[in-house]
Write a protein that binds this DNA or RNA. Sequence first.
DNA 1: TTGTGTTTTATTGCCTCC
DNA 2: GGAGGCAATAAAACACAA
Length: 293
Amino acid sequence: MSARGFLYGGDSSGGGGGSSGFNSLFVPGSSHSFAGSRSMVSFEDKRNGSSGSFFRTVDQEDNGDDEYDEYFQHPEKKRRLKVDQVQFLEKSFETDNKLEPDRKIQLAKDLGLQPRQIAIWFQNRRARWKNKQLEKDYDVLQESYNELKANYENLLLEKEKLKSQVLDLSDKLLLQETEKGTSDSSSTKSPSEALQQEQVMDCVNVQDVASDSSSPKCVDGVQSFSERGDSSYLFEQDQSDGSLDEEDNLEKMFVTPLSGYLLPKIENCDYPEHYLGLFPNHDQDQSFGFWSY
DNA sequence: TTGTGTTTTATTGCCTCC
DNA sequence: GGAGGCAATAAAACACAA
């Protein structure tokens, strides 16, 4: 048995103590609320409701002698605090949830309770408050998770949309390349060719993608031009030229909408090979395997 | 009325601080 | 080493549906 467990004026081991200890401490007419008390509510209050205690007991108000007799026969019973007492303690708890010794003594006097009971009440109240806080934290986290999940699902939808858009554009470019191979070598574009190229360039909107901070980044060792800071990566096939400096190169490039690759704008509609050749594993099943969010 | 789940009061053991 | 806090737990009191 701990020293603290002994504070109720009786034997606290296993709810023991019995009425003998209580009776020996009971002082009829005493002005001290704590004299002889070992249960939740001072027994002195039951004997003399007008004593120094701020509150009377529930039983005293409600039932009178029957309950009083029961108390003497079963003084070990646990008693709940009165509503007024709880409200008083709640207000005190709102002021400060820690209990200094002086405040504990004062509250005990005001409420006609044992200082130990005040300490226990604050301890249990802090535990309840902590649980409430945990519940609130959980709700906040849950809400945050739901928001992230919704964002993620929206990004997946956007990804699929962009994916189909790129495939559609690739088809158009391949078709364009095929038509070019079968037509004469004239440098003049047919109206349909010009329209197709215009559509491609409209869809590949450099500003939209480059300024979108939420755009996915390419991974798996594939770096964009801006990450690499080295234009040679994208011009390896044209290095024989050697006449272009970087400023000239930048003016002739565009950023791919999906991965942020910086690719050369190629005149005469011949960039299907260049465009597609810069995507790793370009086929319909794997061409987007380097995406990550 | 009774069985059951929840809340409240209280104890115990361990830990930290002074 | 004592005082006090906390987590885990017991047990009484309470709420409520069947």
